[in-house]
């Protein structure tokens, strides 16, 4: 039990923080209700997928600087393919874009394995490449999205007989949870998941105990690409268009990963922490906006909070390591 508390302590702390922030939000804006919560989740959606993409790679001991660019590319691809196309065509677009993310992620991984160039440099290079590709696909923000795709993240899930509760379960949240669980839970319980943690913890030790390091690394990056593609789709779904210039997803994803208790060295942490962390970070932003603070000052505060939390986290890790 104590082990569980210690292991999940960080995530529990984050959840408490989230609840506290939620209460504060309620105090600032008594009218803050289920509808606002729904729009919060919709705003979080692309960030959450970006964070998931980053998390899996960081656990495997790497870092993926190309997350934002990958999302931009998949987003514009989806938006330009669906532009002027029929509703049914989108049924084909979604798997295509997801497969594209998977393949591009795998390419990232293969480049790292084959060239033996540090992952940070390889993904920096693919950041350029993917950004360029996104600009070739769509020179300016545009495109369109199928109506039924938009509908999957707007509104709430209707549970018959429980209108109060179901109002607090936005479709976007369900989509997020389903997408993440479908991949993460089987992975976490499989040999492959264990291998990913192993190569992140110590590549050499993993190699010597028979883990196929190269293959595992490629799969980790491929899954990261898949999550990023989901993020790109979510972006297109929530905005209705595709934008070739990536948003601040890279910084946000790394910050949420660290805030979520995943060690940047790799091998530690889970997916839940970073996802809760990204909700916390977005809610802080909402609060600052509700307080009618100048959006530019909001950016400063948000950055300062992020840096302070990361510093605090690093300090705690250092203390626990030395004691």
């Amino acid at each position: 039990m104590t082990r569980l508390v210690r292991r999940q302590g960080w995530v529990a702390g984050l959840l408490v923080l989230f609840v506290v922030l939620f209460v504060i939000t309620k105090l600032i804006q008594p009218g803050y209700g289920s509808g606002d919560f729904g729009s919060l989740v919709r705003a979080v959606l692309p960030y959450a997928f970006a964070v998931a993409a980053q998390t899996i790679v960081v656990i495997a001991g790497g870092i993926d600087l190309s997350v934002g660019a990958m999302m931009a590319l998949t987003s514009v691809t989806a938006a330009s393919m669906m532009d002027g196309a029929s509703e049914e065509y989108a049924l084909f677009v979604v798997p295509f874009v997801l497969a594209m993310g998977l393949v591009l992620g795998a390419v990232n991984g293969m480049l790292i394995v084959v060239t033996r160039v540090p992952d940070i440099v390889v993904t920096l290079a693919t950041l350029f490449v993917l950004q360029g590709a996104a600009l070739l696909v769509l020179g300016a923000p545009g495109g369109a999205v199928a109506e039924w795709l938009r509908a999957t993240i707007v509104g709430t899930v209707a549970i018959p007989g429980l209108p109060e509760i179901s109002a607090w379960i936005p479709k976007a949240l369900v989509l997020l949870v389903v997408c993440l669980c479908i991949i993460w839970i089987p992975l976490r319980r499989s040999k492959l998941g264990l291998s990913i943690y192993a190569i992140g913890s110590s590549e050499l030790a993993a190699f010597r105990s028979g883990v196929p390091v190269a293959r595992t690394k490629i799969i980790a990056y491929a899954l990261s690409g898949l999550f990023a593609a989901m993020g790109g789709l979510a972006l297109t779904m929530s905005t209705g268009i595709g934008a070739p210039i990536p948003g601040p997803y890279l910084l946000a994803s790394v910050a949420a990963v660290v805030l979520g208790g995943v060690a940047l060295g790799g091998g530690k942490g889970g997916l839940l922490g970073p996802i809760v962390a990204v909700f916390v970070l977005r809610l802080v932003r909402t609060d600052l906006t509700l307080l009618a603070i100048d959006p530019n000052v909001t950016a400063i505060i948000e950055g300062a909070i992020m840096v302070a939390v990361v510093m605090f986290g690093a300090f705690i890790t250092m203390r626990s390591r030395s004691s």
Binding site: V254, V307, V310, M311, F312, A314, T317
Partner: peptide, 11 residues
């Protein structure tokens, strides 16, 4: 505080 330089400088 031993924050990773990448994060620190991005922040």
């Amino acid at each position: 505080f031993r924050v990773h330089p990448l994060i620190m400088t991005l922040g």
